[in-house]
Design a binder for these strands. Structure first.
Lengths: 332, 332
DNA sequence: TCCTATAATGAAATCGATTCCAAAATTGTT
DNA sequence: AACAATTTTGGAATCGATTTCATTATAGGA
């Protein structure tokens, strides 16, 4: 079914049908004939042809490091939900943490003529930064604060700072920090800084805090925790950059017979569903992943609409930081 | 940058440039001039225009019930990976379990002129079945065996049967089954049948097995398990339709002071990462989610390629069942 | 050298929509 | 009734690619 065939059947020109669909002067009589024909034929305009002619496409590219991950899929759910509500569809690209995967997808998305891109940030390399700057369509970053780019991200620093403060208040004053790669500014650097600043704020020596770097897995948390317990048997608490790491670490603590929370306090970040199935339940900082996705999508769409309507006035880069909520459970 | 501009710069016709890109007779001299011009300008053909002209689009619609879920995101990762490898992109639609959401997305995908659709199945309603049959592009279902449609799914029945057999062999001979809605044939009906048939196979009475229906959450598993323990204090084992439910159920068991695995055995399905962080670690049936996604994508692409090349010969519907692997851990 | 195959070439048609424009129809004003 | 202003209308151009087709250049064979 094409617009021409509909026009033919309704006995009008294709221009008339187009005007019917998009608004334009049309006699009531033809309007009715066209309405009926479209109803009977079940005609839907071809979006590809529409895009071709107008240059407007309602597809948004979403580039994520690995869709199979609790936090990533939550953010993606938020994005997809918001986009759908506003009549857009999601073009998903999952890099599987492949080196330079974002670059490839940035190209793919642009070849597909997407109206905008949401990039879930992990490590910002100069080469990626360049590619992002050269991106011909609006772009919003989630989960990281990339200076100079529109971002929606979490208050990682204060979330972990408060979490650590809670541990210290509970008397777990010789803590270790199980972090992730520093290449990841939000989850790596910010969370570590938050933990160490809380230690400093309590009048303790941050240099005495054992700091280790884990993968984003429970297995890695388990192994690193075991090492720390061997090297620093005196510690009585651990702040972990993610829940997964914390849950792995708890296994190591059980093996060593450390009593949680009496002799040892532990906390994670992300408020994963698994927190409440652990023994004891894991204290964590809730981050608003879904909202992050929704806000990022909303921000992107407003950038796109701005670009389409207004003259290209210079606009300020928008950065949005979302709060957090400490969920206290039995592990501290 | 359009093909015309490239042609202009290279001093050839746009037809020549098109032939350069798609193969066709071209003198070595022009070939070189075009190559250089494309390199200098960084020209990429406009995929929308290409699609417009050829009718071939390299986008696949993927409709899932809820992207924020362990199993769903694993399958999606497999799909996206396979599609990317073969030069396709993923148009993601997450229905958030909204009533009739699949129908809406089926329309959206077709309006976007996708080359094919992968539908992650949950509940098959007659109305959905009709919509799927009316789908104008090839379609593959994952996770469910919908008769008459191309499917890639798991051996849910035998996975749970073997799991249950294991529990019984370990002496947990008075088991309960914590299932999910029967509207979901794979996770609801097949898994329940597997459990009950194993009971029957062991010479026990399947009618004596308490069966309950949970949501797909740990909280729900916790509540239902608590009820079962109150009503049937004699039971000494539980087979759960998902790991999440099982992990929730374990919390109820702890509260009641049931010793796992000495006095009580429990098992789940899905081999979630959280299985190995539980105390004791949860025995589960590993389902090949990622492979399911990859195989579904491969199957869809072969259908598409078949359709594009061959005459429309009548082809048999392909149904692929994937195996499972029992991962025995401390909970049985 | 001449003639026939074959390769190379670009003008033009095409995909399905939107939109400009000039012409036709309708309305309102004297 | 005559004219101006406004609305309605469909033909044709357009978006950026591919592909057909007729034509020209080249190669190979006698």
């Amino acid at each position: 079914m094409t617009i021409k065939e509909v026009a033919e059947l309704a006995g009008v020109s294709s221009a008339a049908v187009s005007r019917y669909l998009n608004g334009g002067s049309l006699s009531e009589e033809k309007r009715e004939r066209i309405r009926k024909t479209i109803e009977e034929t079940g005609y839907h305009p071809n979006l590809v042809a529409q895009t071709m002619r107008t240059g407007h496409i309602r597809q948004i590219g979403v580039i994520v490091p690995k869709i199979h991950s609790d936090s990533v899929s939550q953010v993606t759910a938020g994005i997809a939900r918001q986009l759908r509500q506003r009549g857009y569809v999601t073009l998903l690209g999952s890099t599987d943490h492949e080196e330079g995967g974002e670059l490839g997808y940035l190209d793919i998305m642009q070849n597909n003529q997407v109206a905008g891109v949401i990039l879930m940030g992990t490590c910002l390399t100069p080469i990626l930064s360049d590619a992002m700057r050269e991106c011909r369509v609006p772009l919003v970053v989630t989960g990281q604060n990339y200076p100079g780019f529109a971002c929606v991200y979490h208050d990682d620093y204060n979330a972990v700072r408060e979490l650590t403060r809670l541990l210290l208040e509970r008397g777990h004053d010789r803590i270790a920090f199980l972090g992730v790669t520093e290449k990841d500014v939000a989850a790596g650097q910010q969370r570590r800084l938050g933990a160490l600043d809380a230690v400093r704020g309590a009048g303790l020596d941050p240099n005495a805090v054992p700091v280790t770097v884990c993968e984003f897995t429970a297995e890695s948390g388990y192994l690193r925790m075991k090492e720390i317990l061997k090297r620093h048997p005196e510690i009585n608490g651990a702040v972990c950059a993610t829940d997964t790491i914390a849950l792995g670490a708890m296994k190591a603590l059980r093996e060593q017979g450390r009593k949680i929370p009496e002799e040892f306090g532990i906390a994670g970040v992300g408020d994963s569903w698994a927190c409440s199935t652990a023994v004891p339940e894991l204290t964590s900082a809730h981050l608003y992943y879904r909202e992050c996705g929704e806000d990022a999508a909303a921000m992107l769409l407003s950038l796109i609409e701005q670009q389409e309507t207004e003259a290209p006035t210079e606009m300020p880069v928008r950065q949005m930081m979302l709060g957090y909520k400490i969920i206290e459970r039995g592990s501290v």
